[in-house]
Structures are given as C-alpha cells and as structure tokens.
Design a binder for these strands. Structure first.
Length: 224
DNA sequence: GCCCAGGTGGGTA
DNA sequence: TACCCACATGGG
C-alpha cells in the first residue's frame, strides 16, 4: 500500500535530519534580530545579509528603539551589502511603524497575539510577504507557521510532492495539515531543506552537475 | 562577464 | 488572474 503524504513528508524529514543533524536556527541573538534578518534576506544570499547585520550591530541599531529613531538613509547605508538597500530600508521602517504602533515596540507583546490574527496583520504591513511573515512567526515568535521558500518548491517538485503550479498557501497547507503542528519540527524542517539545497549546489561548484537543485540545471529532473 | 541568492510590490493585459 | 519588471550587492 502506498504511503500517505504525511508519512512521506516524515520520511523526508528523517532522512534530512539523519544527514545534517539539528540546524539550530535562526542564526540570531534576539527575536528582533530574526525579524530584521528575515527582511534583509529577501532574494539575497545569507552571507550578504550577515555583513549588513554586523554593520547594524556595530552601530547599535539592532534593537528596536535605536532602529526606530534612525533615519532611513542611515539604515540604507549600513545594509548596503545585503542588496536592494533603499527598498529594504523602507521595509524595515514600515515594520518598525507596525511594531511601535501596534505593540509599543515590543516583540514579546507581539508574541502574545493569536497566530492566525497576527499572520493576517503582518501580511498587511508593506514589504512583508508570506515567506517573511512566516519566518518571523516561526523563528522570532515561536509560532507553528511553516515557511515555504524557493528551495522548498524546487526540492518537493523534484521529488514529486508538488506539481509546480501550487501557490504559497497550498504548499504551506500541505505541510501544516500533514505534519504535527510542532514549532520545533517546523523550525528544523525548513532549516534542513535550506541546508540540503545549499549543500547540493555547493557540492558541484563550479560546474553544476546531477545533484544541483537549480531549476535551470539540465539534470534537474533526475535526482534529489 | 554571467548567473544566482532563504521575495515583494506595482503595473499591465 | 497571470505575467513582467524593478529593486542591487557579492560570490562562484
């Protein structure tokens, strides 16, 4: 008898976990730092985000009050290495407005709000799309909200769980409905997917080979 | 020099 | 709704 989707998802998780072990995500010191990182990493390699984080931290801007009071131009200058710096500086500002207007600048206070309601409110903030919002919910606020990203789409399309045309919400629901609603599980699962996809690409540099997960890879349909 | 990276918003048909 | 495109730096 064929395995259920839920147990197949669990098998994939077990394989990844046994291969890579616990990922200990998100790489940040505070919930606020997670939220900032989630915005900065939009369509950007994490290595570049780290440089921006270091810049912000060294100037003392990686805490709510300081960032709230900083000008958009100053923040833009510091986050330059993460790319799209003018855009991201506006997005940070827009998140700060939300954090202060709705929760008095407190991530702890934000955490007390019910997950579904909070997700809707965060999605209404300019500059925060579904992936960024779910990253904040899961990694900063420890809410059981599964994060779907480009890696998730590619990998699960490759192994036949996805057809390719599914929307963000559909993929998110697949994981959330078929897996136990567990913060630690969701945390590890997404982190393991990212780790696996990164390693599969790194492994084959400089020439993309059969393990590469990049969509344009000629071998993209042949292996995980 | 080219491709890509842990997306999102805005415009157009 | 479904595509395009802009946004931008840094590594391979």
């Amino acid at each position: 008898m064929a395995r259920s989707t839920g147990s197949r998802l669990t098998v994939v998780y077990d394989v990844l976990f046994s291969e890579y072990g616990p990922r200990d995500w998100w790489p940040a010191e505070t919930p606020f730092e997670v939220a900032v990182g989630a915005i900065l990493t939009q369509n950007t390699a994490w290595g570049n985000v780290e440089k921006a984080i270091v810049n912000l931290k060294s100037r003392g801007f990686l805490e709510p009050d300081a960032m709230r009071n900083a000008s958009e131009r100053v923040i833009a200058g510091l986050i330059r290495p993460s790319g799209y710096f003018n855009l991201k500086s506006k997005k940070l500002k827009s998140f700060m407005d939300f954090l202060y207007d709705e929760f008095g600048g407190s991530m702890e206070s934000m955490k007390r709000e019910r997950t579904g309601k909070l997700r809707q409110r965060l999605l209404s903030v300019w500059g925060l799309g579904p992936e960024t919002v779910d990253s904040i919910l899961l990694y900063a606020l420890e809410k059981p909200s599964f994060v779907v990203d480009a890696y998730t789409r590619r990998m699960f399309q490759r192994i036949g769980f996805l057809e390719g045309s599914e929307g963000y919400g559909e993929i998110k629901s697949l994981f959330e409905e078929k897996l136990p609603k567990d913060v630690q599980l969701f945390n590890e699962y997404h982190a393991l997917i990212v780790e696996h996809c990164k390693r599969m690409c790194l492994k084959n540099k400089p020439k993309c080979n059969e393990c590469c997960l990049k969509m344009r890879c000629a071998h993209a349909k042949s292996s995980v």
